[in-house]
Design a protein around this nucleic acid. Structure first.
Length: 199
DNA sequence: CGTCTTTGACCGGCGC
DNA sequence: GCGCCGGTCAAAGACG
């Protein structure tokens, strides 16, 4: 069965980072790195370079300068879109790459995903898995793969923005309400939350 | 029976 | 133009 069908019932918010992605509670997160990819300013924030977790976000067609944790091809993956073969151009929207140390391949992010492909990719002995949000009309995709250089890490790439509420939406509301605006270390977190509301 | 996973085939972009 | 590569499709099977 799909392990990501329901949010963890035992969510606890022990750190700032986990208030953004409550589903990450089961994973080893101690660092965030954002790239909002706007106006030529890549917005890169690297709080702890040597930490085991990296999060990279960006707009479609953005600079991709912060996508160095992924392969060169990765930074342009959303330029291709099968749906454009009839001349229609589709805006893919946000993409978020999360690199985390975990023994679990598929993170429980509160959404329901349908697996639609699995490929072995170059420079990575591990298979890459492709998922679509199984909610009707929601075109959000994610890719999950083990880091080729260190299999202890899982790279999860989200593409697009959900057009529906997550079952864990309540947790998002909680984290925004409890946000400490006087704490500078949480400013980047708030920016990310505002950038990626669960709509 | 409905939903999901698996997996080979297909397609398009890109580099040479 | 050709081959490589990544992303997606879709049929078939598994599973509840």
């Amino acid at each position: 069965m799909n392990p990501s069908q329901s949010p963890s019932p035992n969510l606890t918010f022990l750190s700032d980072e986990k208030t953004i992605y409550p589903f990450m509670d089961n994973y080893d997160f101690s660092n965030l790195m954002f790239d909002v990819g706007e106006g030529g300013n890549n917005g890169l924030i690297q709080e702890e370079p040597s930490s085991p977790t990296t999060i990279v976000t960006g707009e479609s067609g953005g600079s991709g300068s912060a996508l160095t944790t992924l392969s060169k091809k990765e930074s342009t993956f959303n330029c291709k879109n099968r749906g454009s073969k009839d001349g229609e151009t589709k805006e893919v929207g946000h993409r978020v790459a999360i690199r985390t140390r975990s023994q679990i391949d598929v993170m429980d992010d509160g959404y329901k995903w349908r697996k639609y492909g699995k490929k072995s990719v170059k420079n990575n002995t591990n298979k890459r898995n492709y998922y679509k949000c199984s909610s009707e009309g929601c075109m959000v995709k994610k890719r999950v793969e083990r880091d080729g250089e260190n299999a202890a890490y899982v790279i999860t790439t989200y593409e697009g923005v959900h057009n529906h509420e997550s079952p864990s939406h309540v947790y998002y509301n909680d984290m925004v309400l409890s946000f400490d605006h006087d704490n500078p270390s949480q400013h980047s977190l708030l920016r990310s939350i505002q950038k990626f509301p669960p709509s």
